[in-house]
């Protein structure tokens, strides 16, 4: 919420630093290829806003550093990766796709993603052994997993590694690629950013499965994907 306001102010600030100006030149470029959502929608949700930390792993996805020290992601690459990830997922049996979300703001959009794509949600605390303990009666055997943050969902990433399950991860500027097979660069902490990324991703998966026409939207809105602040547990 706070970064949402912060960004819109930043983008319209007439006194831009040189760095910001050169940034906008590229951000405003009318790419021939359209983005999955208008750039403004992505930017106002802070999809591109990372953290004050950058890892070497994320270098290729980082666009610049803002004067306030926040590293910013390249939304074009976010868009590209969502498209490829959706293609990738469309080759799996829906129920064998598991979506992991330990962190509060990720839980609700992850569940909505599963509702739309018929994937299996694993939200809240990840029970150790859920993938890797053969003695655990409720053990799951997904064919692929999506983690909302490889740091917060480290247990799932580790167990997927043991079991040879490929891992798709939403990664911000502070994430490392340990145990990750496919990265989707995005703000993975903001409430609105997570709603948009999971909404966009869900819609793209249905389009790739040809369950949805390329110009059609899913029934649920982005707002429907957003965790409500008053909601304690989803």
């Amino acid at each position: 919420m706070s970064d949402k306001i912060d960004i819109s102010k930043k983008e319209s600030n007439p006194e831009k630093s040189l760095q910001e100006e050169s940034d906008e030149e590229i951000l405003d470029t009318d790419d021939e290829e359209e983005l999955l959502l208008p750039r403004d929608t992505l930017l106002s949700a802070g999809i591109h806003i990372g953290t004050r930390m950058r890892t070497k792993d994320m270098d290729n996805f980082i666009y610049r550093v803002r004067p306030d020290g926040l590293f910013v992601l390249d939304v074009k690459k976010t868009d590209e990766r969502i498209r490829i990830a959706a293609k990738f997922l469309s080759r799996f049996e829906p129920a064998r796709i598991a979506v992991v979300a330990a962190r509060l703001y990720a839980r609700y959009p992850a569940k909505k993603f599963c509702e739309v794509t018929k994937a299996t949600p694993i939200v809240g605390r990840f029970v150790p052994g859920l993938f890797s303990n053969p003695l655990y009666s409720n053990r799951l055997e997904p064919a692929v997993i999506i983690v909302s943050d490889p740091k917060a969902d480290a247990q799932a990433v580790e167990e997927a590694g043991i079991m040879g399950i490929p891992v798709i991860a939403l990664c911000s500027t502070d994430n490392e690629f340990t145990g990750v097979d496919f990265v989707i660069p995005t703000n993975n902490k903001g409430r609105r950013a997570l709603a948009i990324i999971y909404w966009m991703f869900a819609r793209q998966v249905l389009r790739e499965r040809e369950e949805l026409a390329p110009d059609k939207d899913i029934d649920l809105s982005i707002d429907d994907f957003e965790a409500k602040i008053s909601r304690v547990e989803m």
Binding site: K87, G161, G164, P166, V167, G179, V180, F182
Partner: peptide, 26 residues
């Protein structure tokens, strides 16, 4: 040995294998 295999996310035509070390070091 611990490893992952999956079809290339993009084209789906090639099997990608990643050994435990390469996954660990990203």
């Amino acid at each position: 040995a611990e490893a992952t295999r999956f079809d290339c996310p993009n084209c789906g035509e090639i099997i990608i294998w990643r050994c435990q070390k390469c996954r660990q070091f990203g």
